[in-house]
């Protein structure tokens, strides 16, 4: 069982969260010329890294906030969690 530290509520069990996928994926900017390739990369193409992976989770059965989690996809170690709009350095 994963234990995820919600930046708002603290350490909670995985059962309270739902997954939102790769957080590094960026939607192409509005009102700009967008190539098919850029759309492809946003909608379909994924790096699916083995190792450190920055991903979105929602604390669905808690505060309902979206958060970012930095997790190892091979060991499930969680290094850090952030608010969705937090700047990551």
């Amino acid at each position: 069982m994963l234990h995820i530290k919600c930046p708002y509520c603290g350490m909670r069990s995985q059962n309270e969260f739902s997954y939102g996928g790769d957080a590094s994926v960026k939607r192409p900017e509005l009102n700009k010329e967008i190539s098919d390739e850029e759309w492809d990369n946003f909608v379909y193409n994924r790096k699916s890294l083995r190792g450190k992976h920055l991903e979105l989770w929602q604390h669905l059965f808690g505060c309902r906030q979206w958060i970012k989690v930095e997790r190892d996809t091979a060991t499930h170690e969680i290094f850090n969690t952030y608010k969705a709009d937090e700047e990551i350095t």
Binding site: L2, S18, E55, T73, A74, T75, H76
Partner: peptide, 13 residues
Amino acid sequence: DGYNSYAQRGNLP
């Protein structure tokens, strides 16, 4: 299991 994983081993929930 519901999230990206290369663990080849699952989780109880």
